[in-house]
């Protein structure tokens, strides 16, 4: 099995990692960087649990080869750390947006990119924007409310940095 060397910045830390060519970004993060907050729920790109940010945009880490990430900046749930992330977490907790916690990482990352766009959104738009993430526990009501509130907060304070 051939290997490739990947230079990738993960949550602000530059890393150089040699992996088998077939290794996914998810496996690189979980097995090699030991960041296990990125979860694998289907490995077919449907459930969204493995969503991470790559150069600021959400991607499925299960459908992204580590080799394709050379030179990229990757942010995982463990690396979300600013006012938007804080507000998201707060609302997730008070709105009942999580139960088992398995989908939560992907929901947060997806929601984070959404609120960082600073676009006004109603409930339906938020629901559509989260449609690529499956939660089996909460029935989504709390997740949608939480993301919408975090979005409203972000729009109101305008502290995008």
């Amino acid at each position: 099995m051939s290997t490739v060397t990947v230079k990738v910045n993960v949550n602000g830390t530059p890393r150089t990692i040699e992996v088998e060519s077939r290794t996914s970004l998810a496996d690189l993060l979980r097995d090699r960087v030991r960041l296990t907050g990125t979860h694998l729920g289907c490995e077919q790109g449907v459930c969204g649990s493995c969503t991470v940010l790559m150069d600021g945009l959400p991607v499925r880490s299960c459908l992204t080869l580590a080799a394709s990430c050379d030179g990229a900046e990757v942010v995982t749930v463990e690396g979300l750390d600013d006012a938007d992330a804080h507000r998201l977490r707060q609302h997730f907790s008070t709105e009942g947006a999580l139960q088992c916690g398995f989908c939560t990482s992907g929901m947060l990352v997806t929601g984070y990119e959404l609120v960082r766009r600073r676009t006004e959104m109603d409930r339906d738009q938020v629901a559509c924007a989260l449609a690529g993430n499956i939660c089996r526990c909460t029935g989504y009501n709390g997740i949608i409310r939480a993301v919408q509130k975090a979005n409203d907060d972000g729009m109101a304070v305008d502290d995008l940095t």
Binding site: R22, E43, Q44, G45, R60, C62, L63, L65
Partner: peptide, 21 residues
């Protein structure tokens, strides 16, 4: 981009020897 190919590869329905990104 791989958003169609990777799901098939993850299921081992496609096992290309070489991938050109």
């Amino acid at each position: 981009g791989g958003q169609s190919l990777l799901p098939i590869m993850n299921l081992r329905l496609a096992e290309p020897a070489h991938l050109v990104d």
